[in-house]
Design a protein around this nucleic acid. Structure first.
Lengths: 209, 209
DNA sequence: CTAAAACGTGAACGAGCGTTCATGACTTGT
DNA sequence: ACAAGTCATGAACGCTCGTTCACGTTTTAG
C-alpha cells in the first residue's frame, strides 16, 4: 500500500520536473510575459489543463521555477563561503563557484540574473518574499566574510555592505557578458578577471602622469 | 505663412512631449508589457486615438522615449569624457556625471538602466539597433580613455574592454542601489565610493594574514 | 469483471488590451 | 460667414492568452 502512494507521487514529481524544464527554457529566453502557457504545454508534451493540475496558475509555475533555481544557487555559494580558509580564499572560492555555475547552466543563469539584478524595478514579476530573503541571506554571508577581512586589515576599510555591492556589480557584469558571448571566454579566465579587477587596483601604485 | 506652419509644429511637438512624459512615468515603474495605452492616454489627458496620431504604435512610442533618454545620456557623458585633462580626471568626471544624472532624474535612470543592463536577455522589448549603437559608441569612448591610461602606465595592463565592463558593473550596481534607497546616499558619496572601489585596491597592500 | 474514483485532455470562455475609424468639433482660407 | 479641410475623440473590433470544466480514458478496489 505505501508503494502505490509512492509510485503516484514519483510520477507526479516527474511530470512536474518535465514541465519546469520546458518552462525554464522558454522563460529564460523570452521572459515571463512573452511566454504562454500553451507554449510550455506543447514543449512539455502535455495538455494545458495538465499544467493547471500541477501548478495553481502561471505565476505559481514561475515562482516554483525561481525558487528551485535560487535554492540550488544559494546552497552552492553558501557552501563555497563556508569552506575553511582565509577571507581571501573564501571570496575566491565564491567567485569561482558562481562563475562556473553560470557557465555550466546558462538558462538557469539568465533566470537568476534577471531576478536578482535585472528587473529590480518590475515588482510585477520580481522575486517573491521568499526568494528575496534567500538572496539576502547569501549577501549577508559575503558581507560577514568581508567584515572579518577588514578587521584583519586584509581588505580596505570601506563599509562591507558597499563592498558587497561592488563585488556583485563587477561579477555580474562579467557574467552577463559571458552569457552573451559564451564562446569568447572560459570560466577560469572570467573568474580570474573578476578577482583582479575587484581585489587588485586598477590604478598603478606609481601614479606619475 | 511660415509662422502658421511653425505654430502647428510647435503644438504637435508639445503634445508629443506631454505624451512622452506620461509614458516615462508609467513605463519606468511598471515596464513595457504592464503599461497600457489607455493608462498613458489618461495620464496625458488625451484620447487613445490621439496617441496613434503621434506615434505609429505602442512600440514606436516606447522607442522614441528610449531614444530621447539615451541621447541625452550619451551626450552628457560624452561631453564629460571630452573635457581636457588626464585620463584619471576624465574617468572621474564620467563617474560624477553619470551619478548626478541618475540622482536627479530617477525615472529616466530606471529606463536607461533597464535597457542597458537589465533586460539584455529579452530581445522583445530591448534596445533597437540605433539605441544599442549609441550605447556602444559611449563604451568605446570610455575604453579609449582607459587604453591611453594604460599606455601611460597609469592604469594596470588589463584589456581595456574588460576594464570598461568592470567600471560599468561597479557603477551600475551602486546606482541601482541608489534608485532603491534614494534617501540613504548623496550623489557625491556614491560617486566617491565607485571611484574608490574601482580605482583603489580592495586588498590592502600589506597582505599579512 | 465491474463500478467508482482519479486523472489527463483541449475546446470553449471571458477578460484585457492594442488598434481602428466613423463622427463631430474646430480651424483655415476665401 | 461659409465651405473645406484638419484633427481629436472614444466606442467598437478583433485578437491573444490565462483559466476552466465537461468529457473520455485509465487505474484502483472489491
Amino acid at each position: 500500500m505505501p508503494m502505490k502512494l509512492t509510485r503516484k507521487r514519483r510520477e507526479h514529481l516527474q511530470r512536474r520536473r518535465e514541465v519546469l524544464e520546458s518552462a525554464l527554457h522558454l522563460f529564460s529566453r523570452k521572459g515571463f510575459e512573452e511566454t504562454t502557457m500553451a507554449e510550455i504545454a506543447e514543449r512539455a508534451e502535455f495538455a494545458v489543463g495538465t499544467l493547471y493540475k500541477l501548478f495553481k496558475d502561471k505565476r505559481a509555475l514561475y515562482r516554483a521555477l525561481i525558487l528551485d533555481t535560487m535554492q540550488e544557487y544559494e546552497e552552492t555559494l553558501m557552501a563555497a563561503l563556508n569552506v575553511p580558509g582565509t577571507e581571501s580564499e573564501k571570496l575566491n572560492r565564491y567567485i569561482e563557484a558562481k562563475t562556473s555555475m553560470f557557465v555550466r547552466r546558462i538558462p538557469t543563469a539568465r533566470l537568476y540574473f534577471g531576478q536578482t539584478t535585472g528587473s529590480l524595478f518590475l515588482p510585477a514579476v520580481g522575486l517573491d518574499t521568499e526568494g528575496r530573503a534567500m538572496h539576502q541571506r547569501l549577501m549577508k554571508q559575503v558581507e560577514a566574510v568581508l567584515r572579518r577581512g577588514i578587521r584583519k586589515k586584509v581588505f580596505v576599510n570601506i563599509d562591507p555592505a558597499m563592498l558587497v555591492l561592488g563585488l556583485e556589480g563587477v561579477g555580474n557584469a562579467f557574467l552577463v557578458e559571458l552569457i552573451d558571448r559564451p564562446d569568447d571566454f572560459t570560466a577560469e579566465e572570467m573568474a580570474s578577471l573578476i578577482k583582479r579587477i575587484f581585489f587588485d587596483s586598477v590604478r598603478t601604485s606609481a601614479v606619475n602622469e
